[in-house]
Amino acid sequence: MKKLINTPESVLADALAGIDAAHPELKVDHVNRVIYRAEPTRAGKVALISGGGSGHEPLHGGFVGLGMLDAACAGEVFTSPTPDQMQEATKVADSGAGVLHIVKNYTGDVMNFEMAAEMAEAETGVKVASIVVNDDVAVQDSLYTAGRRGVGLTVLLEKIVGAAAEEGQDLAAVTALAHRVNDSGRSMGMALTSCTVPAAGKPTFDLPDDMMEIGVGIHGEPGRHREKLADAASIAKQLVDPILADMDFTGSPAIVMMNGMGGTPQIELYIMYNEVAKLLKAAGVEVVRNLVGDYITSLDMAGCSVTILKADEEMLKLWDAPVNTAGLRWGV
């Protein structure tokens, strides 16, 4: 394992120290591992809190700031944070207007956030609403599994819902919007290589040089199937087809994210974006906004994911609203 770390044990603490050093506009609670805005939440503004295992950067800490999250809880690499961390995040971020928990659909995250919500309401009376994002079409038998995983759509949702909260929408409205976004977007990912968790020191799974894994999540968990490596055009088709088969994206403008998994260069992401854009055009999907880059990663995994969101007018307006975070910045 070759990594730019001090020790495997100190990866998270050292990374949080780095975020603290790099971003005076953020504050870091190093004990509870919470990243939050230095400027207190404006009275009456709904607070958005997310979190999850680390290793997906810039998600979630990189999306704390004006127009997106108010606080993010960082768990150990690929391990959910705990309810006491979420409680601390709620304490620093709540301004009295309530809190929305944005949770990716992974069993550990869901349970810990549920407990945090129960504790917050019981102990502090803070109103907590939740959205569990589940956009991964790679998971087919959702009746017999823990359900579709929460992946790329989380980024788009944090941006759009963050703008709504910034605008002053109340908790009910912000929550309803979050559900609408979740219902309107789908993702699909693939891997060229495994990732290596620092504490494990070796790749999570074996993937021969000439093979790729289609339908991966963001922790190196298995995908739909494994097959021979192919060119960018056919890989794009393998990602776009199952998304379009799951939902009709025609008739509304779409926001598309071509996301890198952490170990894929931008030049390849642009090649992939072009292939995806061609396929969507042929399918009659009108792409009006896009993101190309690393937004929700799986450590050093090479690979990518595609997220498509069917956007209504309000979502588009909120998408274009100013955002000022380490990971996403425009209009400011």
Partner: peptide, 15 residues
Amino acid sequence: LVTSVGGASGPLYGT
């Protein structure tokens, strides 16, 4: 257990 285990086991054994 809830605050020290994390993952799914923390909430389940904790509960």
